[in-house]
Amino acid sequence: MKTNDTHPPIGKPSLCGWDADQNPVLRGVRCRACGEVAFPPQHYGCERCGSGELAEVELAAQGVVLGSSQVHIHAQPVPAVPFTVAEVRLDAGPVVRALLDVGREAGDWHGRRVHGVLKERGNDPVVLEFHFGVKA
């Protein structure tokens, strides 16, 4: 989904959004001292070198699936099980985990390229949630 005048709000706007070309992006930080790029963003300090000088950066929401798991037991009714979680190495470096937008389909997603999508979730209110979509 791309932005328009009527899109619902993003559920976790500190973590994701759209870039200037209306493509979903993740938000991270780059350490000004050692260059470490990290996700999720925070300003407490760099985990690699301890510097407090962290700059916010946009991370292209594209990468490769390192592992995935179809979840069969979940404490909340939404999302309904089964759903799939993927661990993805972003092209920008950090490894992130998010829902994989494959519905109830069970599959071997290892090594597949994925890209970020912002999907509507919930009813009251509807929010946009970051997922990874599998590229054809």
């Binding site: 925070q42 407490y44 798991s69 979940h74 404490a75 999302p79 979680v85």
Partner: peptide
């Protein structure tokens, strides 16, 4: 800790 996570609510230890 005040650091939001992308999908931690969906990733129990068993996942």
């Amino acid at each position: 800790a005040g650091i939001e996570q992308l999908a931690s609510e969906y990733i129990a230890p068993f996942t």
